[in-house]
Amino acid sequence: MNEFNKTFKGAAGCIVTDRDIVSEAAQRAAQSCGAGRRVRKLRPAVCALLAAAMICGTGVSAVKYGWLNVVFGDSGNVILENPSDYSLEISGLETECRLPDGEISLNDVVCDGEAIYINLRLTGATEEDMQNYADFARIYPQLTTADGAFKSTVQLFSIGITDHGEDFVEMYASISSADGIDIGDKIDFKFYELSEAMYDPDEEYDFRIAFDVAEQPSDMTISLAPDREMTLVSGLFNRTMEINAESIIISPLTYQFTATILSSTGYSFDNIYEAMNQEAAVFVMKDGSRISGMDICDSYGGSLDGNDTYHIYAFFKRVFPVDDLAGIEIGGSYIEVTR
């Protein structure tokens, strides 16, 4: 135990109150009539469409959601020419809002086989309330197969929140899995005021969006296995490290990079993570243009397998045209895309 540890422990132990908080809370609890939060199960407008479709005898059991060009907010140009390629059919949509005056609806769902991207509309909360959920990761995503098995290496990213004043707040959130997204997968987003998913995952969330994937998403992924050694430089710490690039996955929505650290650097995960981010890929297009990962990637996340293998995940700020990609440059090493 170092000196900071001992000193801080002692210092924190000196922070005490003479107010009888427990008695106050007990009195309040005794006075409480135990009224629970009102739960409203909302039926989004889409269900009216479903009902209408069934009455008409079409036998439609799912509704296809379209793509909104504005989904990435102020990102500027949308490169993809056919955004409807990414729309996703869903079924079993459930929304549940426990905010006193709140309503929630699902505007849009997009999927590229690697990630699902949802766009929500929420009344009864402010942009700063929503930023709390994003900042402190109080969004509990669950991604399971049709059989209920949990999918692996699930990453959650909240990409944007837009305040529409008194009318509503719009929120974008994405989820990806190393297993990809398949028909029958169940998506469940719960948003918590207090993070209590550890022990009570079904309790005290503020609102919830859940649905099933009703069609097999198109696989638009480029998967590369370079198995190549290269040197990265960490701009922040100006250090070099030797890595073996294990795999690169590029889909219209995501960029994923897995590498094993070879040199004994003694760096913390944070240092290595920053190096892999800062040495972000340069995407070389078929027309010769080069797009820096620093410009187009957003919402980096990462994880560590064992002691040496790092996975970096990023979402693109706008849909990436994978068909036009010729290769990728990392750490000065060019890796050609082979199809």
Binding site: F136, Y140, M198, F269, S303
Partner: peptide, 24 residues
């Protein structure tokens, strides 16, 4: 971490952030 001696993983569960975010 220092007062409660929780592990990185436990802290991540409490704050509902990833262990890498805790480490960061």
């Amino acid at each position: 971490f220092y007062f409660e001696d929780y592990s990185i993983k436990e802290i991540g569960r409490i704050l509902k952030i990833s262990p890498s975010a805790v480490t960061s």
